[in-house]
């Protein structure tokens, strides 16, 4: 008998004996109202406000812009923050447009993020100033972005560089985590890695004092396109 059989055997025995003891009732599961976790019904305005309030409360930056000229906003941010090397993909819409706007125009090196990490790990860890990613959408209730990393925008792009710049569309903000899961049918389509990101990396392990950028990005900048 394997450990698996023994463990499952004990659990099944426990469950069966319990059923016999109390006449087939088993563990009593309390009646619960699942609406406490969804059903917010916020207006578009309220959603936006909540998203921004919560994300900025955890040190995230939200910068609004028109959808059409978001790359100008990007250029401004890159300049402001002194970003010299920006890692990004090249196929995803966001990456394509950013490349178009940036290539040759500014004194910024564009680092190809769509490479097997083994071939550029050292560079990624020590020579990239910022990573640019698109987002799946966001959650108003907690000020969270949701990301499904792709071949073009891999998992480490939103984690390793000191600044993470994320592009979000105002229409893609939903009320709750629950709503996002349901409306995008996560249960039937989970990717290798799905992420909620709410602010820059932080720790309070030194006497409850907040410090940012402990392992992941020190800054999270969300360009919110309207």
């Amino acid at each position: 008998m394997t450990a698996r059989d023994r463990i499952l055997g004990r659990l099944r025995k426990g469950r069966e004996e319990r059923m016999q003891r109390d006449g087939g009732r088993g563990i009593v599961i309390p009646e619960a109202d699942a609406s406490v976790i969804g059903d917010r019904g916020w207006s578009r305005q309220e959603r936006l406000q909540r998203f921004e309030r919560w994300l900025t409360s955890v040190h995230g930056e939200v910068i609004h812009c028109e959808t059409d000229d978001w790359t100008e906003t990007l250029c401004r941010i890159l300049k402001q923050k002194g970003i010299k090397r920006l890692a990004l993909g090249h196929e995803q819409e966001v990456a394509r447009q950013a490349r178009q706007a940036l290539e040759g125009k500014m004194d910024i090196a564009l680092v190809d993020a769509a490479r097997d990490v083994e071939s550029w790990q050292q560079e990624l860890f020590s020579q990239v100033d910022a990573g640019l990613t698109s987002t799946g959408g966001a959650i108003a209730e907690t000020g969270s972005l949701w990301l499904w990393p792709t071949v073009d925008e891999p998992r480490l792009l939103s984690l390793v560089p000191p600044i993470h710049i994320a592009i979000l569309d105002a229409e893609a903000i939903e009320d709750t985590f629950h709503d996002v899961m349901v409306s995008h049918e996560w249960a039937g389509s989970m990717p290798t890695n799905a992420l909620l990101v709410s602010g820059p990396s932080k720790t309070a392990d030194i006497e409850q004092t907040l410090a940012y950028g402990v392992h992941g990005p020190r800054e999270l900048v969300v360009i919110l396109r309207h």
């Binding site: 955890v58 000020g143 990101v197 990396s201």
Partner: peptide, 9 residues
């Protein structure tokens, strides 16, 4: 909320 919620499949 925490900064990261990491779901690995």
């Amino acid at each position: 909320v925490t900064t990261y919620f990491n779901m690995i499949t």
